[in-house]
Design a protein around this nucleic acid. Structure first.
Length: 426
RNA sequence: GGAGAGGUGGCGGAGUGGCCGAACGCGCUGGUUUCGAAAACCAGUAGGCCUUUACGGGUCUCGAGGGUUCAAAUCCCUCCCUCUCCGCCA
């Protein structure tokens, strides 16, 4: 959410920002409502002041005079009531409109409509050259009995899976390696709820707009399953005023992630690429409202994930996500795409976002600055490792001609010291 | 799921209709004192909104939302949350 005062003062920039993101929002309606709101609040406050004074006079007056004085307040009372009702309506309308205004993308965000317009800014690693026909992770998974899609679907419907044996171990190995490496970098490990109130989904910017992508419990509980630990972690200090000495706060959390993937029928149906549930280690940074510091954090959290991919010996590229492919809340986003031989291309594995105070304003996440002033924090986050897409990349990139898979050095300690998984396929 | 208790400022904790945005204590900040520190003493110390060049003024908020009243932290209703006991349970 943007600051209403900021929108009023910078309406053109807000409109231009929304256009760059290809998102529609009604700024003129917001301006009109705000004008009405100001006039109303001024009048309302004056009336309330009168009312309070009158009340105090009644308290001091002789009891015999009270009924008459009280009766004289009837008009003011009625007027107050209708003004308050109107005021509440305006606030509600304004809030609803405000929640739909997107954050303004940074100048460095490229113009564009879809992910095809994202701009590659970096490439690392040599693409694997196979002197045999490489197998997809689905083929390897099936041949080794590592992945069971059929039973996954039988239990839980399409886009569900069961990992078996070494594949399950490898999943745990990746998650633990990712988690440990972030703790080693000074991030505070967190175990958080994956079931959150819809209010928290609004606070982090997923609602309104993303309802179709989230699983929601039934009406008995107003709870949603999160699509990422970003949600509970960013919301950890909501409604608080933090001390600037305690910032930045850097968190790492592993969680199960649930995604409905509505509207993706027929897309990426094979294998583990697009699934309803996976594990993910996520990094979140909360800091003071300083653009330079936010930028530095953004580079740092991007670097953290790059380091992970490098130690897993996986080729990847970094793209600067274009305006049209940016979500409503982000100032800027860098995606890391890791090479996946079966796709004969790079597949998105990481997403590093910078929000400035967009989320913290919704969450009422603030800090007291050195000057004593209270401001909204800046927030950022990035994937460290998402289980299924990492599994795809590792298994496909490190496969051998005989169908075995080399375990990257970094993961070997987490795999009982083994260097290879799977028996040679005939 | 059943029964009960409770949600007040950074924390503890008063306050059961008007003088309460809120006693008192702790904490924190500034000052006095001191060679320095501690202690003591004095002062200050929530946030949102409107208004004002500024100083300031006004208003709202005592878990959330409604209601009663001239007037609500205080009375009534609904919801949320926490705690205790019982039941169930990984």
């Amino acid at each position: 959410m943007l600051d209403l005062k900021f929108i009023v003062a910078n309406a053109d920039a807000v409109i231009a920002g929304a256009a760059k993101k290809h998102i529609t929002c009604d700024v003129p309606a917001i301006l009109a409502l705000d004008t009405e709101r100001r006039e109303l609040v001024t009048a309302l406050d004056a009336l309330r002041a009168e009312q309070k004074q009158a009340g105090k006079l009644i308290a001091k007056a002789d009891p015999s005079e009270r009924p008459a004085l009280a009766a004289a307040q009837a008009d003011a009372k009625a007027k107050l009531k209708s003004m308050e009702a109107r005021s509440k309506d305006i606030d509600a309308e304004l809030k609803a409109l405000l929640l739909l205004v997107p954050n303004i993308p940074a100048d460095a965000v490229p113009e564009g409509a879809t992910d095809e317009d994202n701009v590659e800014i970096k490439r690392w690693g040599d693409l694997p050259k196979f002197d045999f026909a490489p197998r997809s992770h689905s083929e390897l998974g099936e041949a080794h009995g590592w992945i069971d899609i059929v039973r996954g679907a039988r239990i839980s419907g399409s886009r569900n899976y069961v990992l078996i044996g070494d594949m399950s171990l490898l999943e745990h190995a990746i998650m633990r390696f990712a988690f440990d490496s972030m703790v080693a970098r000074g991030f505070t490990p967190l175990s958080v709820p994956t079931l959150v109130r819809s209010e928290t989904m609004v606070g982090t910017g997923y609602f309104p707009g993303g309802e179709d992508q989230a699983y929601r419990c039934d009406d008995r509980d107003d709870l949603c399953l999160v699509g990422t630990a970003e949600v509970p972690v960013t919301a950890l200090h909501q409604d608080e005023i933090l001390d600037f000495e305690d910032l930045p706060k850097k968190f790492v959390a592993q969680s199960t992630c649930y995604r409905r993937e509505a509207g993706t029928y027929g897309k990426d149906t094979k294998g583990l690429y697009r699934v309803h549930q996976f594990q993910k280690v996520e990094q979140v940074v909360i800091d003071v409202a300083d653009e330079e510091r936010s930028l530095a954090h953004h580079e740092a959290i991007l670097g953290n994930s790059e380091a992970l991919l490098q130690s897993l010996e996986l080729p990847y590229r970094v793209v600067n996500v274009c305006g049209g492919d940016l979500g409503q809340p982000q100032i800027q986003k860098f995606d890391i795409e890791t090479w996946m031989p079966s796709r004969e291309g790079f597949g998105e594995t990481h997403s590093a976002s910078r929000f400035h105070d967009f989320q913290s304003r919704r969450l009422s996440l603030r800090y007291r600055g050195e000057d004593g002033k209270v401001r909204h924090c800046h927030t950022l986050n990035n994937t460290v490792a998402a289980s299924t897409r990492m599994l795809i990349a590792i298994v496909e990139n490190h496969q051998n001609a005989d169908g075995t898979v080399g375990i990257p050095d970094a993961l070997q300690p987490y795999m009982g010291g083994r260097t290879v998984m799977g028996k040679p396929l005939t």
